[in-house]
């Protein structure tokens, strides 16, 4: 499952539209991301940030347009997707085993978000901020080159927001792609900001 390492990761959306719940949420949206890019998605609540991430992830079919993705993807949204009865460590190991990612990466993922002390606590006992960090650790442990992060800064304190910033930069410098949906301006240098509020225009940062 590490095919993504062979060819450089890329995302290409050409004039896509998305329908969700019978409503046209996105239209005429184009996006191109190459290895090393961090794309910041901005928009008000309900502007279609999550829809766009789900469209890229392949969870939602494109109603029109072209979608081409090279490389494995990892999605973190408001749901942790870790088994609540397992310890954080075991729950992360389940996905790591499924992804075939190296076991050392799990420890690195725990360290990246200061979760090592919580590794043997059942995931169900984590607080909401800790759950967000656990979901982000799952992303790091997946070894996927494309990260799709839906409001990753929500519920993070400033120390952990800084940890996420530095981990994002590290991911990009290693040739990864990250799409970060957020309602605040980017706190790091990004390749581009896509604002969904005004006709889906891509602005160079």
């Amino acid at each position: 499952m590490t095919d993504g390492q062979v060819a450089p990761a890329s995302i290409l959306l050409d004039n896509v539209a998305a329908i969700r719940g019978g409503r046209l949420v996105l239209q005429k949206l184009s996006l191109h991301a190459e290895a090393g890019d961090i794309i910041w998605l901005r928009g008000a609540n309900g502007s279609g940030k999550s829809t766009l991430l789900r469209l890229i992830a392949g969870l939602l079919p494109a109603a029109a347009g072209r979608r081409e993705i090279t490389g494995n993807m990892a999605l973190a949204d408001e749901r942790m997707a870790l088994d609540l009865s397992q310890t954080l460590e075991e729950a992360l190991d389940f996905w790591a085993a499924l992804d075939g990612s190296p076991p050392t990466l799990r420890q690195e993922a725990l360290d990246a978000f200061d979760l090592s002390a919580l590794a043997d606590i059942p995931a169900g006992y984590l607080s909401s901020g800790q759950r967000r960090r656990a979901a982000l650790a799952r992303i790091v442990a997946s070894a996927a080159p494309i990260w799709l992060l839906d409001e990753p800064y929500n519920g993070l304190d400033s120390a952990n927001a800084a940890r996420l910033d530095s981990r994002l930069l590290k991911h990009a410098s290693a040739g990864g792609i990250a799409l970060v949906a957020a309602h605040q301006p980017s706190s790091i240098n990004v390749a581009a900001t896509l604002s969904l509020d005004d006709e889906s225009r891509l602005q160079a940062a």
Binding site: A74, D77, R79, M80, A81, L82, L84, L98
Partner: peptide, 11 residues
Amino acid sequence: EDGFLDQLAIR
């Protein structure tokens, strides 16, 4: 509800 099925679909 926990997004587990979505995670499998992405993979």
